[in-house]
């Protein structure tokens, strides 16, 4: 499978604290990849390095074959990034915010308005598209964020904790939306979360991330084999077992 995101030996330090430690990871084209880990495991930092928003101390990143440190603009042209707790210009409407993003991507104003209208419909914000985003709820902002990411027709979308703060029904809807978009347009999705069942629901492959290192990556079956070789798959190991075994005390890292 063609690799869209490739990280090798990636390291990031803040002072003496190593946040990302010799990380090797790859995401194939069209995949939905889940980055699962407790808070403070270095997921966001890894994502920032993929976007060229912070520089790695060692190792290389390749996104769509490009190095985000040297060619951030080209990477950002192909990759949509939804930051954790995304914000919008609150005195502009949802529609205006989307059109603004589109125009920063050099999309002509008419085309931008057309795309924004279509996307707002897709994410279910048609009724509120002329409302100021300052009045949006958290879930609405998150869905607007997804539309914002998609407006440039990206090859890859990177979502950092996109389901945080949305109610369970909303989460389900949101995740279904991501899967639908990924399957329809062949978009590669990298999705970070600390919620096990969400990752389990939608992701083709999962990487388990603790203390800046990737403990294992693969689909759920192979993960169990990697982490517990002695069980020989004699009993079915669920992700939750893996999760709780490895993340015990994981919240201490916050």
């Amino acid at each position: 499978m063609e690799k869209i995101i490739e990280l090798s030996g990636l390291t990031k330090r803040y002072g003496t604290h190593i946040v990302v430690n010799h990380l090797d990871m790859s995401v194939g084209k069209g995949e939905i990849f889940g980055l699962l880990g407790p808070n403070g495991a270095g997921k966001s930092t890894t994502i920032l390095m993929m976007m060229g928003l912070t520089e790695p101390d060692a190792g290389t990143v390749r996104v769509c074959g490009l190095d985000p440190v040297r060619r951030p603009i080209q990477v950002k042209r192909k990759v949509g990034y939804l930051p954790e707790d995304v914000g919008f210009y609150e005195d502009m409407t949802g529609m205006e915010n989307l059109v603004y993003t589109a125009r920063l991507n050099e999309i002509h104003a008419d085309e931008a308005a057309r795309r924004a209208g279509g996307l707002l419909e897709n994410v279910g914000l048609r009724e509120v598209k002329h409302k100021k985003t300052g009045k949006y709820s958290r879930g609405m902002r998150q869905r607007l964020g997804l539309a914002d990411v998609l407006i440039k027709h990206p090859e890859v979308i990177i979502l950092d904790e996109p389901t945080l703060g949305i109610d369970p029904a909303g989460v389900k809807e949101f995740l279904e939306l991501i899967v639908k978009l990924s399957r329809e347009d062949g978009i590669t999705v990298l999705f970070s979360s600390h919620q096990l069942h969400q990752v389990q629901q939608v992701c083709d492959r999962v990487g388990i991330f603790v203390d800046g290192r990737l403990l294992a990556q693969g689909d759920i079956g192979s993960l169990a084999a990697q982490l517990f070789p002695d069980t020989h798959m004699t009993r079915k190991i669920g992700l939750d077992e893996i999760y709780y075994r490895y993340f015990q005390g994981g919240d201490d890292h916050e």
Binding site: M51, I73, Y81, P83, D85, V86, G87, F88, L104, G145
Partner: peptide, 14 residues
């Protein structure tokens, strides 16, 4: 602080 900077910086602009 409004969280718009990282969104704008994720767009292909220097």
């Amino acid at each position: 602080s409004k969280g718009t900077l990282s969104r704008i910086m994720a767009q292909p602009v220097p």
